[in-house]
């Protein structure tokens, strides 16, 4: 079968040696098994993330995202633009929608893009990789690729914010989306029901600037996973993964808790279920070791 082709926008955190480099490692095998080919957009740049608004005004942020769209349009024509990072996806999709809706913004954006020798027509559709999995691949095909079901694992599906809001995935509810639970079950694990922190914000970029407020959020997210009997948290978001994993030790230090809840990506579950080893699944990239998953991958 011919592979499905996509223009790939990895984003800054997915670069080698960056905070989500194990995410990008883990999607390699997953995409291979599901006949997805990701073609990296040449010379892509930062999307501005959710915190870029402070210094960057509306047009500079639109222009940053328009540059990536224009590069995809020019070098990988006809391909949807796919990102694995919710912030990249959100910023790009917001930009594409605004530019396609308002002709004056598109004209101004192109005036600025000209300085970088580019022009945007507005034909590229920005998508999240989870949309590709659900809409283009489908749960059946995701299940068929499983060679090593993740039996006897109870997992809390933590969707977080930006994969879920404001656009959502596959038309699911904002308050209780079910796709992540379904993905967990697709690979043979058990998704805990009633995980009440499923769509709670981890604090996002404010984990850096307002650590106490953010760590209160993280404490709720981890505590509820324990309360519901989960052995591990799974998330589609790079910043959620980092915040919820990294700051558990800080919360333990300040509040006397004994948190050691592993936090992994859905793609790591899929990689292991599809026969991937520790390295292929990026399971060597954790501060809190997901031992049970590592044992299955060994």
């Amino acid at each position: 079968m011919a592979k499905k082709q996509y223009a790939f926008y990895p984003g800054c955190s997915s670069q080698k040696g960056a905070s989500a480099s194990n995410f990008v490692t883990s999607i390699g095998l997953m995409c291979d098994k599901l006949d997805i080919q990701l073609n990296e957009i040449p010379d892509w740049n930062c999307c501005g993330a959710s915190i870029g608004y402070g210094e960057g005004g509306e047009l500079p942020r639109l222009v940053l995202n328009a540059r990536n769209l224009a590069l995809a349009e020019q070098h990988l024509p006809g391909q949807d633009m796919v990102s694995g990072c919710p912030a990249c996806w959100l910023a790009t999709r917001e930009a594409a929608e605004r530019l396609n809706k308002f002709d004056d913004l598109m004209a101004e954006t192109n005036e600025a893009l000209k300085e970088a020798g580019l022009n945007l027509k507005g034909s590229v559709k920005p998508r999240h990789i989870v949309e590709v999995l659900i809409e283009d691949v489908g749960f059946n095909a995701m299940k068929q690729a499983v060679v090593k079901p993740l039996k006897d694992m109870k997992i809390a599906g933590y969707v977080g914010c930006q994969t879920n809001r404001p656009f959502g995935i596959a038309g699911e509810s904002f308050e209780n989306p079910l796709y992540l639970d379904k993905m967990i079950e697709t690979v043979g694990a058990e998704a805990v029901t009633g995980y009440d922190q499923k769509v709670t914000c981890c604090g996002g970029a404010l984990a850096f600037s307002e650590p106490e407020k953010s760590q209160k959020q993280i404490r709720d997210i981890v505590e509820s996973a324990y309360d519901h009997g989960a052995e591990m948290i799974v998330t589609p978001c790079q910043l959620c993964q980092a915040n919820v994993e990294i700051y558990q030790s800080e919360i333990n230090k300040k509040q006397g808790t004994k948190f050691a809840m592993p936090v992994v990506y859905y793609s790591q579950l899929m990689s292991v279920a599809y026969g991937g080893g520790i390295k292929e699944a990026g399971l060597d990239g954790h501060i809190i070791q997901p031992k049970k998953l590592q044992d299955i991958a060994r």
Binding site: N45, C46, A49, G52, G54, S209, E210
Partner: peptide, 14 residues
Amino acid sequence: PTRDIAKLFWVNSV
């Protein structure tokens, strides 16, 4: 603090 890091982030990425 968020104002400060927002500026640092933008300057760093651009």
